Amino acid sequence: MTPDRPATRPAAFARLPRPYRDLHILRSTVDAFGRAHWLLTERPPEPRREKPYDAVVVTVEDGRPYETHLSALQAAFPLFDALPDGGFVVADARSRADEEHVQVFDALGRLSWTFRVGDGIEHLLTDEAGDLWVGYFDEGVYGDDELSWPGLRRWSPTGDHLWTYHSVDGGGAISDCYALNVSGRSAWACAYTHFSVLEIRPDSGVKPRSNQVRGAKGLAVHGSRVALLGGYEDDHDRLVIGELTDTGVTPVTQGRLVRRDGSTPGRRRLVCRGARIYVQEEPFTEWDVLDIGPQSTPMG
């Protein structure tokens, strides 16, 4: 990334309260309602998943924290999200075909359901109705578990299969679901190898739009405005703002997303929700946000 490209700084969004920072952070996310969650344990789980472990979810909503205690978790490489009723879903990113590697907990932290959704999970995002959108990386798509082969699926919170991505003209097959955005009841995706921007609505199917921005890991959409964050090698902090047409993405500006202090970011986790890309770097105690909605700050 060349230094003369205009820089955009995210805004501070949520912070893990200091009393919890001595615990081990397994994972963190921001849900469909804008609440930040951290999945915490006393120590890392056993790598062979032979022993279940207890965890606490610390939720920060409007600056106020509260806890939900979960028991007998199995995931060695957990992804998780919140459900509208106050419960949580936890899934192991890697699994064997005989494992029910998804655990659903109610609002009191009690285990309600277990099922499987396939190996090689890259993204696990719930929508406002509680359905699970699962995007898979290449080892799942090209692995032995046929549940992962389509690259993107939607499941109910009780494990019923609701929708599967199938290759469409202009969208191609999904080899690796690089970016996934879930907002309301709909989703957007950008996947290797075509990198088309896929608009997915339960009532109208998949609408692909051609896109020349390769390798983006973050995707935000507001009206006809779209943001694509990331890329290969020196473009890891690239931020492209574009316009959605009926058939494609037209880039308008290209810059870079920096830290709040203006420095170059390192490795990070992203959660994409509607007009927002939430950004988190090690030690994973804070979330920042890039918002391309009507109150967002332009690049420069």
Rank of each mutant, 00 (worst) to 15 (best):
P3W: 00
A11P: 13
A12I: 10
R15M: 07
L16D: 09
L16Y: 01
Y20C: 07
R21E: 05
L23T: 12
H24E: 14
I25Q: 07
S28Y: 03
F33K: 03
R35M: 09
R35T: 14
T41C: 03
T41A: 11
E42T: 03
E42P: 04
A55P: 04
V56G: 04
V57K: 11
V60G: 06
E61G: 11
P65I: 10
T68D: 00
T68S: 02
Q74K: 14
Q74E: 15
D81I: 01
A82L: 05
L83A: 06
V90Q: 06
A91V: 02
R94P: 12
A97R: 13
D98T: 11
D98G: 08
E100Q: 14
H101W: 02
Q103Y: 07
Q103T: 02
F105P: 06
D106R: 05
A107G: 09
A107R: 12
A107M: 02
A107P: 02
G109I: 09
S112Y: 06
F115L: 03
R116P: 00
I121T: 01
I121S: 05
L124N: 05
L124R: 07
A129W: 13
D131L: 11
D138E: 08
E139R: 08
E139Q: 07
E139K: 09
Y142F: 13
Y142P: 03
E146N: 11
L147H: 08
W149Q: 12
G151S: 04
L152Q: 09
R153C: 08
S156A: 15
S156T: 13
P157S: 06
P157L: 02
L162M: 12
L162I: 14
W163G: 05
Y165S: 06
Y165I: 04
V168N: 06
D169N: 07
G170D: 11
D176I: 03
D176V: 03
Y178V: 08
L180K: 01
N181F: 02
S183A: 13
A191G: 07
F195M: 10
S196Y: 08
R201W: 02
S204K: 10
Q212A: 15
V213G: 01
G223Y: 03
V226Y: 01
G230K: 06
E233D: 13
I241T: 09
E243M: 15
E243Q: 14
V249G: 10
G255F: 12
L257I: 11
S263N: 00
R269W: 15
V271P: 08
I277D: 00
I277S: 04
Y278H: 12
E281F: 05
D288V: 03
L290W: 10
D291S: 11
I292P: 04
I292N: 02
G293I: 00
P294H: 12
P294L: 13
T297C: 08
P298F: 15
M299H: 14
